[in-house]
Design a binder for these strands. Structure first.
Length: 286
DNA sequence: CCACAGGACGGCT
DNA sequence: AGCCGTCCTGTG
């Protein structure tokens, strides 16, 4: 555990509000002064913007500069990707204008898996609260500026947690899914390390789908928002379904099938479908 | 108190 | 293959 500070010059296409509120992560809190505090792996991180710079402080075990570079996907040229997408149509151009500071985070695979199982049939405030309780109960404490924060519990730390324990944390019917998936990971029925190294996206998707609580939408969110980093997937929830129908199909709501939207997204956005999804979702969410 | 919102899943056709 | 009821909790 060490304290670190790092000053990051504001990168192109980078806004904290866009990054943290576009629906990809659940562990960042905004403070009254506009700064954000979050937990990334075994580190608590605080970020404050000031004069086109970010003052970043941390307590934790990882090298802060390297962690920030990886987590915020700073090695990728978002400006170039935005230019490509902007050429597709007016909707893309407008939505990128609106959410130009979005970055797709590289979040820990295990944490993303569990977080999005919790997200099923659920809303963001409740998802955040459940993850907070889960971490406080089973994660490790890190003190930062006088307050306590908790790391996301590892599979081993959830080894002896029962379905009833999960239920008591407010997970509802997701209790059994969390239990079964945790056990499957511990038993190496699914090896996350191997999954991380597998380059065949369809294969990775199929394996994710074998886990309890992972359906098509959750699998695609994991593929896009974790270190798996597959930009070509297009997670479809009821919102993006509605938005895509409004913008491109205009069919009666009961006639739009998921398959049709999926096909349309692949044809229109191709390799960048996931990024396009984020801009569209963020733009039309209100 | 009731209606509704949000994905996975299992049972049905 | 597609359709539909059920699972839990918070909100209006």
């Amino acid at each position: 555990m060490k304290e670190q500070q790092y000053i990051l010059k504001k990168p192109e296409c980078f806004e904290l509000k866009d990054i943290f509120t576009c629906g990809q992560c659940f562990r960042w809190q905004e403070n009254e002064d506009g700064s954000y505090i979050g937990v990334v792996k075994n580190n608590v991180i605080k970020i404050r913007e000031e004069n086109s710079k970010y003052i970043i402080k941390s307590v934790g075990e990882d090298n802060l500069e390297k962690l920030v570079y990886e987590y915020f996907d700073l090695g990728r040229d978002y400006q170039e990707l935005q230019e490509k997408l902007s050429k597709i149509d007016k909707n893309m151009k407008t939505s990128i204008e609106y959410g130009k500071g979005i970055r797709i985070l590289n979040q820990d695979l295990w944490e993303t898996l569990i977080s999005f199982i919790i997200s099923a049939n659920n809303n963001i405030p409740r998802i955040q609260k459940i993850i907070q309780r889960l971490s406080k109960q089973y994660g490790k404490e890190i003190k930062f500026e006088g307050n306590s924060y908790y790391t996301f519990p590892l599979p081993e730390e959830l080894k002896d947690v029962s379905i009833q324990d999960f239920r008591n944390l407010g997970l509802g019917f997701r209790d059994k899914r969390l239990y079964e998936t945790t056990q499957a990971i511990l038993n190496k029925e699914v090896d996350l390390q191997k999954l991380q190294e597998n380059e065949n996206t369809e294969e990775v998707r199929e394996i994710l789908l074998t886990l309890s609580g992972v359906g098509p939408k959750v699998a695609d969110c994991i593929l896009l928002f974790s270190t798996l980093k597959r930009f070509e997937v297009f997670p479809i929830d009821v919102w993006i379904n509605r938005v895509m129908n409004e913008l491109y199909l205009n069919e009666p709501e009961d006639k739009v099938s998921k398959a049709k939207i999926q096909k349309l997204a692949n044809e229109k956005f191709g390799e960048l479908a996931g990024l396009a999804q984020q801009y569209l979702f963020y733009w039309r969410r209100d």
